[in-house]
Design a protein around this nucleic acid. Sequence first.
DNA 1: AGTTCGCACGTTTGCGCAGC
DNA 2: GCTGCGCAAACGTGCGAACT
Length: 253
Amino acid sequence: MKKDWFLEASPENLSNGYVYHKEKETYVCLFCHESFQDGVIYPVGDVLLEAKRAIRQHIIDAHGSVFDYLIRLDKKDSGLSEIQRELLTYFYEGVSDQEIAKKMDAKSTSTIRNHRFKLREKERQAKVFLAIMSLLKKKREDEPDDFVIFHKGAKMVDERYATTNKEKEKILSTYFKEGLDGRLSIFPSKEKRKLIVLQHMISRFESDKMYSEQEVNEKIKEMYDDFATIRRYFIEYGFMDRNKDGSRYWVKK
DNA sequence: AGTTCGCACGTTTGCGCAGC
DNA sequence: GCTGCGCAAACGTGCGAACT
């Protein structure tokens, strides 16, 4: 059995010895990965059992007790000392404090009580710790990604082209190999990349200036030879606008 | 029915020891 | 020297049995 997989399960699943996969509607054994399909009736011994009861029976029959497995984990995984493990085993078996004290070489019952107290304290601490870690995880998942904002007039931009600033950096470094002030190596074919590259190219234009077609071409040529393609994309994707006769160009805000 | 007693258990506190 | 761990004693509390 792969121990990591076992230990990644929730505390409840861990103590059950199995997990329920919602999408597949199956119960899966954490020890051997044997699965039981919800809605199917399984013959177990001389009786028929539905999936949930079948997997519980399977764990008892095939793997013994989940407690035995967990209690035998080493300190690194359980955080329990040798003595704590021994005590917990006695508690699990329902042995009285007096008997435990006797079994554990003349320890007094007060020692056993004190251990019980410490273990409960550990339990409380573990719960708080789990809650803290779960909040941490939740916050990370809820945190909205730092998405690239396109200007309002941008066309062809929808949720399919949502790009994080991190991705943007990566894309730009791929296409502007000489650096962000350098030339574009090739114009990308994927829409998402086109948008990022065009957004970067348009940032080199002044936003309040009126450009002639010639000026636009020259400016683009500083970055890429095929100025006609880029100019067309600027208009098509709404990064730039022009007047009817095409004599004046300006950056859309 | 109310009180007392013994017991079990939880909790607090202090000490000694080992490892770092 | 600090820290964690194991141990034990002391104290407080709840509960049932025995007693008045």
